[in-house]
């Protein structure tokens, strides 16, 4: 949250500070992405980057339009299936396969969004749950998804026919670029005039409508964009993990992305990224404890909602009086 009640001079100063802080944060993030594969398991980092991108997409809605989607896994999962199918069955090279996945999720976003954004708040949340469940059942039944088995052994192929993604280093660079592209797309969107209107809708929708903006169209555009970026994350993940499965369309996945964003900080650029790394690490290191992971996630959820609503980055930013 930015500090709103300051005098203009201080506000201008704060904007300059924000810009500097953001530049530093971005440089640190890129630096960490470059260094990470030397200290951690690259496959883990790539997976986490995909989830981070997924969380950024989700955050675009909850953080800047105050729309809580509890069905975002449908976009992650559908794109993942479409991309896996295109790469494996149709033999498409990975960039085209990912693009197809993104297109599928964006289309799903337009359709479900058009119906869902007419409602707000908890109603919106319930509608997204229901739609994602519908997509889940579709994926259980549809022949191309192979039900419980999922799509396995997805070829990584040569990106644009040039870069062999089966080479882990090239794959890592590819995923890093996709992530940074998606991350900057979200940041650009939020900071653009379009993003300003979204934030204005969040604060006072009737006012925005009275100024002559069609708020529904803005919300639908934001929803579809969020769906597309979630799709980008899912499709990329299918190439990284070489599979697509029901896990990625499940309700649990929709819950996880909420948790990532909540822990990191809703309405901050870096919060979802940090949150995603925390949640994914938690799952990795606690995997041996079986269902305790779910319990711990639930506890973190409850604790965040009760006492830590700003999340990690939100809390840091509030203390330093900057907007990240």
């Amino acid at each position: 949250m930015s500090v709103r009640l300051e005098a203009p001079a201080i506000a201008a100063d704060a904007t300059a500070r924000d810009r500097r802080a953001n530049a530093i944060a971005f440089a640190v993030m890129v630096g960490l992405i470059v260094l990470a594969p030397f200290v951690a398991y690259p496959f883990f980092i790539m997976q986490a980057l995909c989830f981070a991108l997924f969380a950024c997409a989700f955050n675009l809605l909850i953080g800047y339009v105050n729309l809580l989607s509890l069905g975002h896994a449908m976009f992650l999962g559908l794109a993942s299936y479409v991309c896996a199918h295109a790469a494996k069955v149709w033999g498409l090279e990975p960039v085209s396969a990912i693009a197809l996945g993104v297109a599928a999720s964006a289309a799903l976003g337009v359709v479900t969004g058009a119906l869902a954004i007419r409602s707000i708040g908890i109603y919106f949340a319930m509608i997204t749950v229901a739609f994602s469940q519908m997509v889940y059942f579709f994926c259980v039944e549809a022949p191309f998804t192979h039900g419980e088995d999922g799509i396995q052994a997805v070829p990584q192929g040569r990106a644009l026919g040039l870069f062999d993604l089966s080479n882990p280093w090239i794959l890592y660079v590819f995923v890093a670029i996709v992530f940074l592209f998606g991350f900057l797309a979200v940041q650009r969107t939020v900071n653009s005039p379009f993003g300003e209107i979204l934030k204005a809708i969040r604060e006072n929708e009737p006012r925005v409508i009275s100024l002559g903006y069609r708020s529904m169209q803005y919300k639908l555009a934001a929803f579809s964009l969020s769906a597309a970026i979630a799709g980008l994350a899912g499709a990329t993940k299918a190439i990284v993990a070489q599979n697509a499965s029901l896990t990625d369309v499940s309700f649990a996945m929709s819950g996880e992305v909420v948790l990532m964003t909540l822990v990191g900080g809703m309405g901050t650029f870096y919060g979802p990224v940090i949150g995603a790394f925390i949640v994914v690490s938690m799952q990795n290191y606690l995997a041996q404890y079986g269902e305790w992971v779910t319990v711990i996630q639930g506890v973190v959820f409850v604790a965040c909602v009760l006492v830590f609503r700003r999340g990690i980055v939100g809390e840091l930013a509030a203390r330093a009086r900057i907007s990240l």
């Binding site: 105050n66 809580l68 819950g255 779910t294 319990v295 996630q297 639930g298 506890v299």
Partner: peptide, 21 residues
């Protein structure tokens, strides 16, 4: 109200996780 929704969501995870355990 989204916060109470998220809270009950977290509680659902706790209860379900415990029983699954």
């Amino acid at each position: 109200p989204l916060y109470s929704l998220l809270l009950t969501f977290g509680l659902a995870l706790i209860f379900q996780g415990l029983f699954q355990n």
